[in-house]
Design a protein around this nucleic acid. Sequence first.
RNA 1: GUGGAUGUAGCUCAGCGGUAGAGUCCCAGAAUGUGGAUCUGGUCGUCGCGGGUUCGAACCCCGUCAUCCACCCCA
Length: 438
Amino acid sequence: MSIIEPRVLKGFRDFLPEQEILRSALIEKLTDAFKRCGFVPIDTPVLEYEEILLGKGGGETEKQVYRFTDHGGRAVAMRFDLTVPFARFMALHAHELYLPFKRYHIAKVWRGENTQRGRYREFMQCDFDMVGSDTAASDFEIVYTIYTALSNLAIPAFTINLNHRGIFNRFLASQGILDRSVEILRTVDKLEKIGRDATHEQLAELTNPALADKLLAFIELKGDNLTILSGMTQLAGGEADDTKRIRAILDLAQASGFEQSLRLNPSITRGLDYYTGVVFETFINAMPEIGSICSGGRYNDLASLYTKQHIPGVGASVGLDRLIAALEALEVKVPVSGYCQALILNLDDTLLTDYVCCAKSLRDAGIACEVYPETKKIQLQFTYAEKKAIPFAIIRGETEHEKNIWVLKNLDTRNSVDYTSLEALVQAFAQTNMQRNS
RNA sequence: GUGGAUGUAGCUCAGCGGUAGAGUCCCAGAAUGUGGAUCUGGUCGUCGCGGGUUCGAACCCCGUCAUCCACCCCA
């Protein structure tokens, strides 16, 4: 009988325990941050009707979406982000909910695009949005949640880049080139990647050399955030709601003490065309080339595809897999704990009752542990513990049984401590464990 | 989707037309007798997959799959 070659699809991955433990630890920390900021969880189906996800049809996304006909002949598609399903969700359930509504949604999404490091066909997004409020307070809440969530992950220094599409569009309008805003936005977005000269060249092609100079002057404004803001205000033709909104967000960030992580950046525009107000992109300072690890913005008409009700919203999404790829590239070790804490060595068949009782006592005390299931050579049992990153071994062989002691061995330092009773062992272990976790 | 690079033992890689290699890991054994040193022996490869050229291919050619890089787009 022939064997089927085991393999996974391009851009799809298996996760071994070491990776999955890291992923779940990061998800836990993100969830914790979202909850602290007042967001509640929801979930939606992986599959939606194709028309729901594709809407009026958007060139690029349409090419990337996984689509097929189900067994009932329905045209269906796999979600490629969590925002569009959320818009459908709001249109369907607005009457059962309340506004403003703040939700987080951590789930896999699928895009059939070409792969690269940190770019996969199946990946996890961690979305958080607030809908039903178009205020500086709600914009700020998302920025603050980005800051809280990423800070909670203890990742290297990051910068949240902030911009407002309205200001840029006013500037384009004043130059009479608002009709080409989409192309100009896409080009401007590449400034930090392709450099000043190439950007100028492309902008000149879209407009003319003189306008390209002006565009570059706008997106290359330098200085602290307030200086940049005043420069943008001037070039856009004066104060308006958009500049006031940015100023309010900057003030709130300052009051909250994280203005050093927030940068007003006129070259950040976001390719997605549904953004209507503030936009954000977040980069790890030491690894900008991996791309944005958390992006989002304000979209005031998103649910309009599915309802006549006007539901403004603002939100962002952490790209967990891209973030992990960056952490790997930077060789950042994220400490994780909470998995098996102790291996009870199996040294003597006749002592199995002792081992099982020990495991029960530890488990009752909330300590994760396991009994090695075979009386194999002790070296093998140690090797097993090491591979599984189990920090402690509990040793009780013939000698220890005669002396009626339990030995707790720290597998890292290789020091052993004797205990005269199981209770003493469990108690000591619990204390050690608390110290490790604190 | 377009262009380029890569794909050899579990891992890191060498070999680049003539009988598959090294280090590491793993397994068994010696000594330790609650393991990081040392010694002895050993297992493991459809050379990504399929086809072609050749007396003969891991090595050349074509296709295909996957990974990485650039473009595109984006988390």
